[in-house]
């Protein structure tokens, strides 16, 4: 069973405000090309993936917010680190919504290939806006694996 979308949205808003000092408000699907997708896998009593899409400018924005640095001065490694940590925090909190034992993978950051952004066959995607930049949080379930347990 997928976690409720409103719970995932609330977690996202809380993490954005607490760790970045930024507002993530409800947004609509954006045609603006995402540059990166950062993901963590959950395995165990629930099997799935939590991922966040970022435009290039949002990646710079959240990095400067988290590191309290000047905008657009972060290195690619720092941007990957911050995006991965945001996925880790949302994923870790989503993992806590399931009662059975689960493991959380380390975060990974990938270029936003089309197949990563396609609507998941079994999942939900929530859109947000942060200072004019759209981003999405996707929770997808690996149903076949989950049914085997």
């Amino acid at each position: 069973m997928l976690p409720r979308e409103d719970v995932v949205s609330e977690l996202t808003r809380l993490i954005w405000s607490t760790m970045l000092g930024l507002d993530a408000v409800e947004g609509s699907e954006s045609a603006e090309a995402a540059a990166f997708v950062t993901s963590v896998d959950i395995s165990g009593s629930w099997e799935g993936t939590v991922s966040i899409s970022f435009t290039r400018s949002l990646a710079q924005h959240v990095t400067s917010a988290m590191l309290a640095s000047e905008p657009a001065t972060a290195t690619a490694a720092e941007e990957n680190d911050v995006m991965g940590e945001l996925a880790n925090m949302i994923g870790g909190n989503v993992k806590g919504l399931f009662s059975g034992p689960c493991q959380l993978s380390l975060p990974r950051v990938e270029p936003a290939a089309t197949d990563l952004l396609r609507a998941p066959p079994s999942g939900s995607r929530s859109w947000f806006e942060c200072d004019g930049q759209a981003f999405s949080v996707t929770v997808s379930e690996r149903a076949e694996l989950g049914r085997d347990r």
């Binding site: 760790m19 988290m66 590191l67 309290a68 680190d81 911050v82 991965g84 940590e85 880790n88």
Partner: peptide, 13 residues
């Protein structure tokens, strides 16, 4: 922490 950003934030916090 394996995240440099998180080590920085923990120190700041």
């Amino acid at each position: 922490d394996d995240s440099k950003a998180m080590r920085m934030i923990v120190t700041r916090t």
